[in-house]
Nucleic acid binder design. Structure first.
Lengths: 136, 136
DNA sequence: AGAAATTTGTCCGTATGTATC
DNA sequence: AGATACATACGGACAAATTTC
């Protein structure tokens, strides 16, 4: 096959097909997608195209890939539908300026700073950790 | 060259180099990046690798690509980010998890994380420095 | 413990399609 | 119409992480 991609490119068509299988439950949440080599056989596409299709699913939050293990289907849960991250636990403590902070605040390295720390959680997992520093 | 990617993969190194040029102003906001074929010559990398590097910049919001026209540098200013206080420059880099971050993210100490750093300025003085960490 | 098989990650070179200049 | 630039696709090779035997 040369490379005709009138309309939608192949990687997108393949992504749509795989998406259907996940959303319809043919591939159960947490379940493993077929290996890339298996998918190349099924769709008669090159591995690069298959990988690109899977990348689409990852970007959409429908799948997660682990080096050496495979690609797992995610539960199409609430967070895919714009649910806000659950912020939590704002804590405060005193820390000492590292080199970068010292330069920015124009103080000596080691000077005491106030640090506010917050964590956002998404689906039971820590998604972001934020540390905000200011002078005392 | 076979495929030695000890440490960081080539597409990431190239992305970092291009990022520097944008953030330092070597490529002015709105300006055009060199064409992919030009970058293949400069970095002695295949076009696929160059395209992958540019994709990283797009994902980071640093560049925009238009079919047939080229890839443009975006102003590294604060975009759709809920309009925080004063002029805060946002920069991104990779860091290694310290003990606390490792515990929160449930990874090994030293694992690579993404750090977004922003600074708020009040009357010419740095008021706060915020570091937000996320898994890669 | 160790070797082999499996699976994803990176990279190359090439060819062709599509959009813009 | 021609030149330039990005988009898609193929096939091959080797690297790295994981699982299996």
């Amino acid at each position: 096959m040369p490379t005709p991609h009138y309309g939608q490119p192949r990687y997108r068509l393949i992504a749509n097909e795989l998406r259907k299988r996940i959303e319809s439950g043919v591939i159960t949440p947490g379940g493993l997608l077929p290996a890339e080599t298996a998918l190349t056989a099924e769709f008669r596409a090159s591995r690069g195209t298959i990988r690109r299709a899977i990348a689409v699913l990852r970007d959409d939050g429908l799948a997660t890939t682990a080096h050496g293990r495979g690609t797992f289907a995610n539960a199409p849960s609430s967070e895919a539908r714009g649910a806000k991250p659950q912020a939590s636990s704002l804590s405060r403590r005193e820390v000492h300026a590292d080199a970068e902070l010292a330069a920015l605040f124009e103080v000596q390295v080691g000077v005491a700073l106030i640090e506010l720390r917050s964590v956002t959680i998404q689906g039971g997992k820590v998604e972001t950790v934020t540390r905000t520093y200011r002078l005392r």
